[in-house]
């Protein structure tokens, strides 16, 4: 696979990387592009862009509700990919899509990844697609269209499997800091930095980004002690709830609160 935006970012950027997860169509259908532009403006290192699904079984209440709101607002996968294309025209920031398998099956696996390549998506996180189903249904189309798959590993993942997931992943590995769904209090409270350290010492090919449990400067710095950076999802969506028309200010305040405390 050719060297891409994600690889360049991890190579060139010193310090801890910050990625933000945004839900397109949330809080309003038109929020996607202004929110993304504001995040880019504030120097976020890359964006994770959710693809809403009616039954998000790995997500806690905040992301569930944001996804539901987005769908109620009329968001769908075609519209979402148009928004992503617009973000790409505006910036060369790495873009990672994150979403459940079913909408992709309905769009058509081949058609979906062809479109991702066309509009400049770098990688996908598919939270209900484990390695085995990835190989069966997704690997061929993703490789053909130069899309990286990013797997999640958690403290319950055997280290042997961590190596296997690393070997298939491109860009980075998404480390889940505790066995929990996104954005729950236990995810914040029980961050297992020991596990992150253990994984960081395996000599993996991919850098580590810590996925769940970050909501402020303190949790960001704790989570990223043994990782290249962190991804903030639920806490950001909460902050964006009433953001319409004020995306720039809210995003600025939020990003500062993570970066500087």
């Amino acid at each position: 696979m050719s060297v891409g935006r994600l690889e360049n970012l991890f190579k060139s950027r010193a310090g801890k990387l910050l990625s933000i997860f945004l839900m397109p169509g949330y809080p309003r259908l038109e929020s996607t592009v202004p929110t993304a532009k504001a995040l880019i403006e504030e120097g976020v290192d890359f964006l994770e862009i959710g693809m809403p699904f009616s039954d998000p079984l790995a997500d806690g209440p905040v992301i569930q509700q944001a996804g539901q709101r987005s769908l109620q607002n009329g968001m769908n996968l075609s519209r979402l990919l148009e928004d992503v294309a617009e973000i790409r025209e505006h910036s060369e920031i790495p873009l990672v899509l994150m979403g459940y398998a079913n909408p992709l099956f309905q769009y058509g696996i081949e058609a979906f990844f062809a479109r991702c390549e066309e509009i400049g998506v770098d990688a996908c996180i598919l939270p209900d697609v484990p390695l085995e189903e990835y190989r069966r249904h997704f690997a061929a189309a993703m490789k053909k269209h130069h899309q990286r798959i990013i797997f999640l590993v958690s403290s319950v993942t055997p280290l042997e499997r961590v190596r296997e997931l690393d070997a298939e992943s491109g860009g980075f590995l998404d480390v889940v800091s505790s066995p929990s769904v996104t954005g729950t209090s236990s995810a914040v409270g029980q961050m297992n930095t020991g596990f992150i350290r253990e994984v960081s010492e395996l000599g993996l090919q991919n850098p580590l980004m810590v996925g769940f449990g970050i909501r402020d400067a303190a949790t960001f710095s704790r989570a990223t002690e043994f990782a290249r950076g962190g991804i903030v999802g639920s806490a950001f969506l909460e902050a964006m709830k009433e953001s319409t028309g004020k995306e720039r200010e809210i995003v600025k305040t939020f990003v500062l609160s993570i970066r500087n405390g």
């Binding site: 079984l57 790995a58 398998a101 939270p127 209900d128 697609v129 484990p130 085995e132 189903e133 069966r136 797997f151 999640l152 590993v153 958690s154 319950v156 993942t157 055997p158 499997r161 997931l165 889940v176 066995p179 929990s180």
Partner: peptide
Amino acid sequence: DEGYFGQFGGAFIPELLQP
């Protein structure tokens, strides 16, 4: 052996449930 009945079945689960 892969958990399928013809084309149906499989195990689409978050990595956290994999063990």
